[in-house]
């Protein structure tokens, strides 16, 4: 979890491979803070914290917990997009609009990977059709909750929706098609316009799996 504060490492601000544990995080035992390379203050949390967050929310708002987590993720993603834009420009001396897209996305995800949110893989093969897939390995939420037989990574789906919406300046939604918590080996997200995500949500509630949904989207179906 992070909040922006003063940038800690001005010794070599143009260094790009700074994601090793000891390099990315600056531990200050006197102040009791952990500040990362980009100046965000980090807080270490346990798996119990994630369980408490998810189950506490469930107790408070019931079925609306999923939508709440998604909304929290959206806001986080939107804010992080602005924060990313600012540190990217400082570090690389260029606007995010001038960067190679895949490189830009990897650069956005690296701090999150270093913070323990998992590794990812972006599949842009269907970008021209208006949607794309994101594979997430080691989701912090799913890994913590274990096999519960349904998707649980609403926070991530919101994060991707919020970030990509800001990046492309067009409203994009996201749904988790398969999840480590359903017994799969990794989580898979679909990102796209509202109509496609609504269609995917409908097919999913009808029992379609990730592969069925991918096939139907590629065939151009919209319900």
């Amino acid at each position: 979890m992070t909040t922006a504060t003063a940038r800690p490492n001005l010794r070599n601000p143009k260094k790009h491979n700074h994601y090793g544990f000891r390099e990315f995080f600056q531990f200050d035992p006197d102040k009791g803070t952990i500040v990362d390379w980009n100046g965000s203050q980090n807080i270490l949390t346990t798996e119990d914290f994630i369980i408490g967050l998810v189950e506490g929310l469930q107790d408070e708002v019931g079925d609306a917990a999923a939508a709440t987590m998604y909304t929290i993720g959206c806001e986080w993603g939107q804010k992080d997009a602005f924060f990313f834009e600012s540190w990217f420009e400082k570090e690389y001396d260029r606007s995010i609009r001038q960067a190679n897209l895949m490189f830009l996305l990897e650069t956005w995800w690296w701090p999150l990977a270093a913070q323990g949110w998992g590794r990812w893989e972006v599949d842009m093969g269907d970008r021209k059709q208006g949607f794309m897939f994101i594979n997430l390995f080691d989701s912090a939420v799913a890994r913590t909750l274990g096999d519960v037989g349904k998707p649980v990574c609403y926070l991530y789906a919101g994060l991707f929706s919020g970030f990509f919406t800001e990046l492309v300046r067009k409203q994009l939604s996201c749904i988790e098609l398969q999840c480590y918590s359903m017994g799969e080996t990794y989580c898979k997200f679909l990102l796209g316009g509202r109509d496609r995500i609504d269609a995917a949500t409908f097919w999913q509630t009808e029992g379609a799996n990730a592969r069925d949904i991918e096939k139907r989207l590629r065939a151009g179906e919209l319900r």
């Binding site: 790009h16 491979n17 994601y19 190679n100 895949m102 490189f103 996305l105 990897e106 690296w110």
Partner: peptide, 9 residues
């Protein structure tokens, strides 16, 4: 880190 960058390019 470099692996992801080389793949991106």
């Amino acid at each position: 880190w470099m692996q992801t960058v080389m793949k991106a390019f």
